[in-house]
Amino acid sequence: MSDVTGGPFPAAVPPLRHPVLRIRSAAVDLRQRVLVMAIVNRTPDSFFDRGRTFGLEAALRAAEAAVDAGADWVDIGGQPFRTGQRLSVAEELERVLPVVQGLRARSEVVISVDTFEPEVAARCLAAGADVVNDTTGLRDPDLAAAVAAGGGHVVIAHSLAAPRSPWPAPRYDDVVDEVRAFLEAQAEAAVAAGVPEERIVLDPGHDLNKTTVHSLELTRRLDEIAAIGLPVLAAVSNKDFVGETLDLPAEQRLPGTLAAAVLCVLGGARVLRMHDVASAVQAARMTEAVLGLRAPAMQRHNLPEERGAA
Rank of each mutant, 00 (worst) to 15 (best):
206 H>E: 13
195 V>A: 01
128 G>C: 10
105 A>T: 02
239 K>W: 00
268 G>I: 02
29 D>W: 07
25 S>H: 14
142 D>T: 02
219 T>S: 12
206 H>A: 02
274 M>W: 01
289 A>D: 05
41 N>T: 12
299 Q>P: 03
148 A>Q: 13
182 F>A: 11
296 P>V: 04
110 V>A: 03
262 V>Q: 04
80 P>D: 11
42 R>W: 04
133 N>S: 10
291 L>C: 01
253 R>Q: 04
54 F>A: 14
209 N>P: 00
228 I>V: 15
51 G>K: 08
129 A>W: 03
124 C>Q: 02
242 V>P: 06
127 A>N: 06
308 G>S: 14
305 E>F: 11
280 A>V: 01
244 E>C: 14
280 A>L: 10
247 D>R: 12
288 E>W: 03
275 H>E: 08
142 D>Y: 04
139 R>V: 03
309 A>L: 11
88 S>H: 06
77 G>N: 13
58 A>S: 15
168 P>Y: 08
127 A>R: 05
89 V>Y: 03
163 P>G: 10
253 R>A: 06
99 V>N: 04
296 P>W: 08
2 S>M: 10
77 G>R: 13
125 L>N: 01
36 V>A: 12
171 R>W: 11
102 G>A: 02
78 G>V: 08
31 R>K: 15
193 A>F: 02
239 K>D: 02
58 A>Q: 11
151 G>S: 05
272 L>K: 00
252 Q>F: 09
208 L>F: 15
110 V>H: 08
66 A>R: 04
191 V>N: 08
170 P>R: 11
270 R>Y: 04
33 R>A: 06
204 P>A: 10
14 P>C: 10
115 T>H: 03
210 K>D: 09
10 P>C: 15
194 G>F: 07
205 G>F: 10
275 H>Y: 06
224 E>K: 11
225 I>N: 00
77 G>L: 15
98 P>Y: 01
112 S>E: 09
225 I>C: 00
57 E>N: 05
115 T>I: 05
293 L>K: 13
190 A>T: 08
197 E>A: 10
171 R>Y: 13
93 L>A: 10
92 E>Q: 09
125 L>P: 06
213 V>L: 14
149 A>G: 07
177 D>R: 15
251 E>T: 10
221 R>I: 12
241 F>P: 01
110 V>L: 08
139 R>S: 06
245 T>C: 14
93 L>R: 09
82 R>M: 11
28 V>C: 15
57 E>Y: 07
154 V>D: 10
196 P>D: 05
247 D>I: 02
